[in-house]
Amino acid sequence: MALIALCLWVVLAWVLQTVLTARQSWPAAYGLIACGLPLVAWLWLSMSALWALLGLGVMALVLRWPLRYAVRWLKARLT
């Protein structure tokens, strides 16, 4: 069931990416992150840590730009 939820999350991310403008995509990304973190925990609890890491990897591929900005922000804070 958790894998089906992950697939639906990916489909939702794709639909949001095709429908929304660039200005609307950041709030959508925050919403996807907020839905994705409990989904990773669900994958971990129901399947295993390997599946949770794979799900997290899929989410990182889908949300690559927010991830890049977060890494840049952390680098700027640490230096």
Rank of each mutant, 00 (worst) to 15 (best):
A2T: 13
A5Q: 14
L6Q: 01
C7W: 07
C7A: 10
L8M: 08
L8H: 13
W9D: 03
V10T: 10
V10N: 01
V11M: 13
A13Q: 05
V15Y: 08
Q17V: 01
T18R: 08
T18L: 15
T18D: 12
L20V: 09
L20R: 02
T21I: 07
R23G: 14
R23C: 08
R23D: 13
Q24E: 14
Q24A: 15
Q24V: 10
Q24C: 10
W26I: 11
A28C: 12
A29H: 01
L32N: 02
A34D: 04
A34V: 15
A34E: 05
A34S: 13
G36D: 02
P38V: 04
P38N: 07
P38I: 03
L39R: 00
L39F: 09
V40T: 11
V40I: 12
A41Q: 15
L43G: 02
W44S: 12
W44R: 11
W44A: 15
S46V: 14
M47W: 02
M47I: 15
A49D: 06
L50H: 10
W51K: 11
A52R: 00
L53R: 04
G55F: 00
G55N: 06
M59A: 12
M59S: 06
A60L: 14
L61T: 03
L63F: 06
L63I: 08
L63N: 11
R64T: 12
R64Y: 12
W65R: 15
P66F: 01
P66T: 13
L67E: 02
L67K: 04
R68C: 09
Y69T: 05
Y69D: 10
Y69E: 13
A70V: 03
V71G: 02
L74K: 08
K75F: 01
R77P: 00
